[in-house]
């Protein structure tokens, strides 16, 4: 199987097969991302379609300086922001701590099913940052490019999102180890 960088290069040359492969690699991830950020299935569908069309159109602008997933979620994030702007929704801003948050809290080690349920109860913003950091495994520097926020803010958002996840888990009966 081709690596993702090679796939993007081929998509830039309008290789249909490469685009199909990329589509199947990312369709669930992008749809889930939009669905959980917007909490609206129809909008999630529209934005997923729009993101794929932009990926196809702009594949030649990928310079290989970041992970392919960062580049794709960067596009997704821009599509999302444009959508919000169009709909004139206000983006709920989170309290931003510019300091580097030091995570000395005990690690979350609960049952996967319980964590899944807790994630569902997080705010879309918390879910987004944890999704990018833990599911997509994007480094903080790349998340900062995707979300267009400073790296320090990324760290504090991840820290705060995890704390809120812990609180939800506690409410659900998880005591920690």
């Amino acid at each position: 199987m081709l690596d993702e960088v090679e796939l993007i290069k081929r998509v830039a040359q309008k290789d249909e097969k490469a685009f199909s492969t990329l589509f199947y690699l990312y369709k669930n991830r992008l749809f889930y991302y939009f669905y959980k950020v917007l909490e609206d299935q129809e909008d999630a569908e529209d934005l997923t379609v729009e993101t794929f069309l932009r990926i196809y159109k702009k594949a030649d602008s990928y310079r290989g300086e970041s992970k392919v997933s960062s580049w794709i979620f960067g596009i997704a994030r821009r599509v999302y922001l444009e959508h919000i702007k169009q709909k004139k929704h206000s983006i709920k801003t989170l309290e931003i701590y510019e300091s580097d948050a030091v995570d000395d809290t005990p690690p979350i080690n609960a049952d996967v099913e319980l964590v899944k349920k807790a994630i569902d109860k997080l705010s879309p913003q918390d879910r987004e940052i944890l999704f990018l950091a833990y599911y997509e495994e994007l480094p903080y520097e790349e998340i900062s490019k995707v979300l267009n926020i400073p790296v320090g803010t990324v760290k504090s958002r991840v820290f705060n999102a995890k704390n809120r996840l812990r609180i939800i888990l506690k409410e659900m009966g998880y005591e920690g180890e």
């Binding site: 979350i108 080690n109 996967v112 099913e113 964590v115 899944k116 944890l130 599911y135 495994e137």
Partner: peptide
């Protein structure tokens, strides 16, 4: 590990 748990949880949610 914590990162594995969260990643798996997202995977299942997805």
């Amino acid at each position: 590990k914590e990162n594995k748990v969260i990643k798996k949880a997202f995977g299942r949610a997805m």
